[in-house]
């Protein structure tokens, strides 16, 4: 990796670079893994045409169930539309991952409503929390009671499926003033231990709510110690990092690492630095579904990279 791509030990990304690789969309990203490397197949609608053969999983993010502000007065309704898209897929994905902000305010009714809608897809779902999922009185207890089974610490875990090692990380807990997302020493120690004994050729998919790399620190879009996790993953031939939080698609490739952020199913947020704040972006009602979506990923053994397909609700 050339030094000019690094800055203060972090991957350097300027605003122009971030904007160039940004795509607007919004339902879910369909991922495929080919030759051990995750590759985007694009949005879910396009994935139908691609008819991926191989092990496929879905990413869904930022449902914000309970949100009812002008940017989307019915976030539960658009989540239902996203799940309807999943149900309509011709090739059933193996499972879903949800990269956090399931709810808007961590209220029991919001968790209940989200669960009711998402379970309709009849797929196993692997969750990680967003900062909106841990603002109950006991700061995360509600999330852990529902989704924390078998996880460590504040909800991190790993599992293997389809020849891929999946790692769900939590970077929204115990954030420090003036800082960004945070993994913390305990989780990094666990990660180091988790990776021991895994061969360098094992494809790795890491998912967490806040982008693990520094997208736009002025808006808090990045993880303070994300680079330490990426350093632990350096020896692996194929690493795919899936995040949410920023409610828009940004993709970047750095060496063996592919970074991808998913659209929200609830409301879009502005491109980095393009608005006074990262708050919900109001788009004309008829445009809303073109900026919400899902991602689908397919893993094709023995062929080319993991394929990610991002699909908007409009398609």
């Amino acid at each position: 990796m050339a030094d000019d791509r690094m800055e203060d030990g972090r991957p350097k990304i300027d605003r122009r670079g971030a904007l160039e690789c940004m795509i607007w969309a919004g339902t879910g990203v369909l991922w495929t893994i080919a030759g051990g490397v995750p590759t985007s197949l694009g949005l879910v609608g396009e994935a139908f045409a691609a008819d991926p053969k191989g092990f496929t999983f879905l990413q869904i993010s930022d449902s914000h169930v309970g949100f009812e502000k002008p940017a989307n007065p019915n976030a539960l309704g658009t989540l239902k539309e996203a799940i309807a898209k999943v149900k309509a897929m011709s090739a059933r994905p193996s499972f879903m991952i949800h990269t956090g902000d399931i709810t808007h305010l961590s209220k029991p009714a919001e968790f209940d409503n989200a669960e009711q809608v998402i379970s309709d897809a009849k797929l196993q779902v692997h969750y990680v929390p967003g900062e909106h999922d841990i603002i109950d009185e006991e700061r995360g207890k509600a999330y852990l009671e529902r989704y924390g089974k078998g996880s460590k610490g504040t909800g991190w875990y790993s599992f293997d499926d389809g020849g891929v090692h999946f790692i769900g990380l939590v970077n929204v807990v115990d954030l420090k003033g003036g800082g960004l997302g945070n993994l913390g020493a305990d989780q990094l120690a666990w990660l180091e231990d988790d990776l021991k004994g895994k061969s360098d050729s094992t494809p790795v998919v890491v998912f967490a709510h806040i982008p693990l790399w520094i997208v736009y620190p002025q808006w808090g879009w990045g993880t303070e110690d994300g680079m330490r996790a990426l350093t632990l993953l350096k020896r692996f031939g194929s690493v795919t990092v899936l995040n949410g939080h920023i409610h828009q698609l940004i993709q970047k490739v750095e060496g063996n690492v592919t970074f991808h952020t998913a659209m929200s199913t609830a409301f879009p947020q502005p491109a980095p630095g393009s608005a006074p704040s990262p708050g919900p972006m109001l788009v004309p009602a008829e445009k809303l579904r073109s900026v919400l979506g899902l991602s689908s990923v397919t893993v094709k053994q023995g062929q080319k990279p993991l394929a990610i397909v991002d699909t908007t609700l409009a398609g």
Binding site: L105, S106, E131, I135, K176, G177, G178, L180
Partner: peptide, 28 residues
């Protein structure tokens, strides 16, 4: 706690000093 739109929070400062604070959700 997390303050939703138009909610507020009050604290009475009784001792002199400098107090730094941040948003627990968006620490920037």
């Amino acid at each position: 706690k997390a303050l939703d739109t138009d909610e507020s929070y009050s604290f009475t400062f009784t001792s002199a000093g400098t107090y730094d604070y941040f948003c627990g959700l968006h620490p920037h």
